[in-house]
Every structure is written in C-alpha cells, then in structure tokens.
C-alpha cells in the first residue's frame, strides 16, 4: 500500500515539475471557463428567468469535450516515458507488485484530473453565491464528469503501457475514446437490436444522463466496469514481459 503512495507521489512530482502540466491546466481552465461563460449567457438570453435550469447540461456537455481533449495528454507519459527511459525494468526489480505500480500511476492521474476541475468548481461556487440554486443536479453532473474522466484515464493508462512513444500513446487513446463516442452517431444505420448494444457501450450516452441530474446505478456500474476493464488490460500488458521479454 505504501508503495502505491510512493509511486503516486513521484508521479505527481514529475507531472508538476514539468511545464506541460501547467499548460494543460491553463488550456483546460481557459476552455472550460469560456464554455461556462458562453453557456450562461446563452441560457440567460434564450431560455428563461431561472438561469440555472438546463445550464448544467450545456456546460457539462462542453466540459466533456475539453476533458476528451486534455486527458490523453495527461496519461500519455505514464508508462511510455518509463519504457523509453528504461526505468520500468528497475521497477520490476523492486519488491513491488505490478498492480501497485498501476494503481500508483492511475491515482496520480486521477488526482491531477481533480485539480484540473477545481477552477470550474470555483466558477460554480461564484454563481451560487450570487444566485443560489439546487445543488443536486450539479453534483450529479460532476459525478458523471469525474466517472467519464477517470474512464478516459484508465483507457489512456492502458494505451501508454503498450508503447514507448508518447505521441502514439496520445493518438491511440484519442482513437479509442472517439470511437466510443461515435458508436451511436449513425443511429439510423444500425438495426434496433444492435443499436441497443451500441447505446449500452457508448460512454457519452451514459454521461448524458448525469448531466440531466439523473444518477442511474446502471450507468455508474458501467463506468466502474469500463475503468476496471482497462486497468485489467494494463496489468496484462505489463505481465506480457514474461513471455515477450523486455523491449
């Protein structure tokens, strides 16, 4: 357990020791701030006298895109850099389990993601101080966004474990995540039975419910399964050295 924390802390130090982290934080803050502002103005102009109803749906659907843009850039180095440097081989000679290595890196990325969401939470708090609103739908949307982001992280962590090239790592992660998004775009083309399965697998359709303030336990379970699945794949990817050797 303490080794998970040791790895997580080193990972965070490496992240915040590099200028990349601050650029990613700044881009996320700017884009999410802009969306928050423009969505708020849009709702005020177009919709109703109650500024908050319907706002979260707009804001969080936009935040979903920014998260999709930034998270693969956060996860790309997690294993790819260790493979490139060769330090991964050393980790395998320390008395630490593969699963502890994976969880340490995973938790570091999750922590960074939560830090990334902070400025936006401040905006929400600011709005609340001027115009108190029902917190339930906002919490639901945040839960959805965190589950979505952590799912992206699990996927990116796995892809990072398969390559030593960070660009490849980010691009393939984009590929997989966008595929899960586009799965249900062409709804007319699929027959009804296939569509139900596709809808069930679409990360973004699952996320949609949370932004409407609906927490369905099936959606939560889906995200947890998605995350576990990719963590399991990461574990398999690390274990592959036993029959494939150390690259």
């Amino acid at each position: 357990m303490t080794r998970i924390w040791t790895i997580c802390r080193r990972e965070l130090q490496a992240t915040f020791g590099s200028v990349v982290a601050y650029i990613l934080l700044a881009v996320f803050m700017l884009l999410s701030g802009y969306f928050f502002y423009s969505d708020l103005v849009f709702i005020l102009l177009m919709a109703s006298f109650t500024p908050v109803a319907g706002l979260w749906q707009w804001v969080f659907l936009d935040l979903r895109l920014v998260t999709l843009l930034i998270v693969p850039l956060v996860t790309m180095r997690l294993f790819a850099e260790e493979k490139k440097l060769g330090t991964i081989e050393l980790l395998w000679t320390y008395p630490v389990r593969d699963i502890e290595i994976i969880l340490g890196k995973f938790l570091a990325a999750v922590a960074f993601f939560l830090v990334m969401l902070l400025p936006n939470a401040i905006l929400c708090a600011l709005l609340f101080s001027y115009h108190p609103f029902d917190l339930g739908p906002l919490m639901s949307a945040y839960l959805g966004l965190i589950l979505l982001g952590v799912s992206f992280i699990a996927c990116g962590l796995f892809v990072s474990s398969t390559t030593e090239n960070q660009v490849v790592s980010a691009m393939v992660t984009y590929g997989i995540l966008v595929f899960f998004w586009f799965l249900t775009w062409n709804e007319e083309a699929a027959n009804q039975a296939a569509l139900r399965i596709l809808l069930g697998l679409s990360l973004f359709d699952r996320f949609f419910n949370f932004t409407r303030g609906v927490i369905d336990i099936r959606d939560v379970v889906f995200f947890v399964l998605f995350i576990s699945f990719f963590l399991f794949l990461t574990w398999q990817s690390l274990t592959a050295r036993k029959w494939r050797g150390v690259p």
Binding site: T2, T6, R10, A14, G17, L85, G86, E89, L91, Y94
Partner: peptide, 23 residues
C-alpha cells in the same frame, strides 16, 4: 541494468530516497 536508467528530472538524493521507499 545494461541500459542505465533513472528519472532524469530528479535529483540524485531524491531519486535514491524514492528507490529506498520502493524497497
């Protein structure tokens, strides 16, 4: 290892402290 490797962004002492913790 044959391919000498260490985290290039760490100082020598903080790196070795990290290694000790891992051990």
């Amino acid at each position: 290892p044959e391919r000498v490797s260490a985290y290039l962004d760490m100082t020598v002492s903080s790196y070795l402290r990290y290694v000790a913790k891992m051990k």
